[in-house]
Design a protein around this nucleic acid. Structure first.
Lengths: 210, 210
DNA sequence: TAGATTGTTAATCGATTAACAATC
DNA sequence: TAGATTGTTAATCGATTAACAATC
């Protein structure tokens, strides 16, 4: 039933989810597209269009039930499924991700942390032992792994891509500041911190220009 | 001279910059929009349109000079200007950012790291001492600060927003998993790791559906 | 000069917004 | 029932792609 929903829509879903989560915490039961639009600074029309890609979740004259909409979007995003994550690179960034509490709440379970630095061997982060990278192959063969987070230095990244592909890990969460070349069936989600910084830099430059 | 270039275009500039940097390293002197488009998996038309927003950087019959285009895009993005950054929250993520080498290469200089945890007091990361948050006001009054990176826990974020606004720091690089409510003249660049994870989750769910 | 490739206009495509009938 | 608000169609707007004359 994948009607191929546009990426622009998908990218907005986590934001809806976040806002609905906040409303839920505040104990708000229902909300109209109009009120939500004021809160989120988008048009009510867009909210209704977006949600209707997945089905009619609202009710005329009432609006949307916060709790059930939140849950539904969670399901759409696959947050009710547990994903097993390995983190490749146990430096500050890798450890930050391993400590990231949201992680587990959203169904992402860190099952392994790998590094090349022998000093880190045996240390653990939130009950996950840091292993050496030469144990990686064996580990993946023994354990289900859905996502490999790339937090190693840039120069090790392409090498690990090849490993990940040959081990048939379906998805990569890429923090290495480079474009990974990959077969089409591997899912990649890039977090280019460097690009984000450049955007900030541009905005500052434009501001000063005025 | 800000003709208000569309955000879609701006968001693509860092990627061009990255590719051109790679080409430069490989010693490639010139490239046509056509060759670059094949490399980057976008249309040649889009490349030419994008670049022409800022001026005619190419030459008919020749293409684009890699080195000068790289430099020009760097200037457009404001990478030749030094920005002073404070990191608010010296946990793993804050320390990871402080260690981020790209950072300084792009004109971002970490001038201060702040935390509430007294155990961290006096420790330093890449020659930047960790200070206590109560020293923050004084520090900002003595030093130029352009960007505050928000790497503290979510519940401290809105409090720090108020501080940043009253101290007139122009920009926030936000890693806290929440929407910050801010006056319009404060620049914010959000890095919602949580959203990125959800996107990944969605892609995995869709894949499994097939 | 001939060939290549840009800069730019025009055509197409897709995404957003507006409007309103359906309906709770 | 009357009022509110959705779901959805139609209109608009903006972004991408195609095409080609200009020009190096």
């Amino acid at each position: 039933m994948s009607k191929d929903i546009s990426n622009a829509v998908i990218r907005r879903m986590p934001r809806y989810y976040r806002y609905l989560g906040d409303l839920l915490e505040k104990g708000i039961e229902r909300i109209s597209s109009n009120d939500l639009s004021a809160l989120m600074n988008v048009t009510a029309s867009q909210i209704r269009q977006d949600l209707n890609n997945f089905g009619g979740f609202g009710q005329q004259g009432y609006g949307y039930n916060v709790k059930s909409l939140h849950k539904t979007i969670g399901t759409i995003l696959g947050l009710d499924i547990t994903h097993h994550v390995v983190i490749l690179g146990a430096g500050n960034l890798g450890r930050a991700l391993a400590n990231f509490v949201q992680f587990e709440r959203r169904g992402f379970k860190v099952v392994g942390l790998f590094d090349v630095n022998p000093e880190l061997k045996g240390r653990s982060v939130r009950n996950v032992k840091i292993m050496m990278i030469d144990e990686f192959d064996g580990f993946v063969k023994e354990n289900k792994v859905d996502i490999a987070a790339f937090t190693m230095p840039r120069d090790k990244a392409q090498l690990m891509v090849d490993k990940v592909v040959s081990l048939k890990i379906p998805a990569i969460w890429n923090f290495a500041n480079m474009e990974l070349s990959l077969p089409d069936d591997v899912i990649v989600e890039n977090v280019h911190l460097s690009d984000s910084l450049m955007q900030l830099s541009y905005d500052l430059a434009k501001r000063n220009e005025k």
